[in-house]
Amino acid sequence: MRLPCPLCGSRDHREFTYQGAAVMLDRPAPDAGAEAWDSYVHLRDNPAGATRELWYHGAGCGAWLVVARDTVTHAVFGAELARQVRR
């Protein structure tokens, strides 16, 4: 599998570390309550198909990416810098 880093170009996925579903960007407010925090930390849509994930380009530029990908076919649709997704 190869991921299109917006800064470095197409790179083998061994350069990156998977960091979970991109819902991790949507951190609840500290007082949002147990349900919201349980949902944020533990529960996952876990789709069989298109998904959005965080990947860390540790062996490259060090950027955090939001990668759009298909979990069944492993097709990669694109990647953006996480800092631009979440301002």
Binding site: G20, A21, S39, H42, L43, R44, D45, N46, P47, A48, T71
Partner: peptide
């Protein structure tokens, strides 16, 4: 291996990632 999809048929989200 398909727990999330079948549970979703009942409107459930699980603490599971495949």
């Amino acid at each position: 291996g398909r727990s999330g999809q079948v549970a979703a048929m009942a409107g459930l989200r699980l603490p599971v990632e495949s």
